[in-house]
């Protein structure tokens, strides 16, 4: 059964829609009912990070093998990751408006990390579109992709040391560990992550097959 993960993703996300809204959550000040956004906002970021890692994986594979198929996969994964960052950022902004009072703040390292990540991906797409020679384009954008990804990971790792975070778990805020201990929430949160990662892989799979068909047609 090749399509198991597609069905699994649909079932898991449906499950999170039902239990995420109907299940019981801890009653907390400020967060109130918005705590349920944890089931939708955070898994999308996980899926985006997963897609970025897939993109890097194929970029490395391309540099080692010089097979154009891998480079197309890497580019497609970057596009899917970039697409996922849009719902991620909008749900985050809405949540921030409700709990912190603003849509966007530069005080928070996670938000800054996300902004830099989006800038890096935009730079990657611009770089790719500015080179016309196909072989050259594949090689150069793969190199930039790998370098930028490493710097992004470094940025996300060191930034919390530089500034306090408004996100739970950093800088004196109540940690998510507190809610994670709530077994009801864990029961929805973990399936949500798996569901969204599978869903992003499905989108990646479809987009990649279209891109591979295009590649084949161009070769003929």
């Amino acid at each position: 059964m090749k399509n198991w993960y597609k069905i699994l993703s649909v079932l898991l996300i449906l499950y999170t829609i039902f239990l995420g809204l109907l299940g019981s959550v801890p009653r907390l000040d400020i967060l109130n009912e918005t705590i349920r956004n944890l089931y939708y906002h955070v898994p999308i970021w996980f899926a985006m990070l997963f897609m970025m890692s897939v993109s890097i994986w194929y970029a490395i594979k391309y540099l080692l093998s010089s097979n154009a198929v891998h480079e197309v996969k890497s580019f497609t994964a970057a596009k899917v990751g970039f697409f996922l960052s849009i719902p991620g950022i909008i749900t985050g902004c809405l949540w921030a408006k409700f709990t912190w009072g603003t849509y966007w703040t530069f005080q928070d390292p996670k938000l800054n990390g996300v902004a830099i990540g989006i800038l890096i991906y935009m730079a990657y797409f611009i770089l790719r579109s500015s080179i016309t020679d196909e072989l050259k384009r594949a090689r150069i954008s793969a190199v930039y992709n790998i370098f930028a990804y490493v710097m992004l990971i470094v940025f996300i790792m060191i930034l919390p040391r530089l500034t306090d975070s408004l996100h739970p778990g950093n800088g004196g805020n109540p940690a998510f560990g507190k809610y994670d201990l709530d077994n009801n929430m864990r029961l929805v949160f973990y399936p949500a992550i798996i569901g969204w990662i599978c869903f992003s892989w499905w989108i990646f799979n479809v987009k990649n097959r279209i891109a591979q068909l295009n590649l084949k047609l161009n070769d003929q």
């Binding site: 830099i116 890096i120 935009m122 930028a148 710097m151 940025f155 930034l159």
Partner: peptide, 15 residues
């Protein structure tokens, strides 16, 4: 292109 490529990547060091 040079500045578009390098600014986001330089960010951790600048900070």
């Amino acid at each position: 292109l040079m500045s578009i490529l390098s600014f986001p990547v330089l960010m951790p060091m600048v900070m």
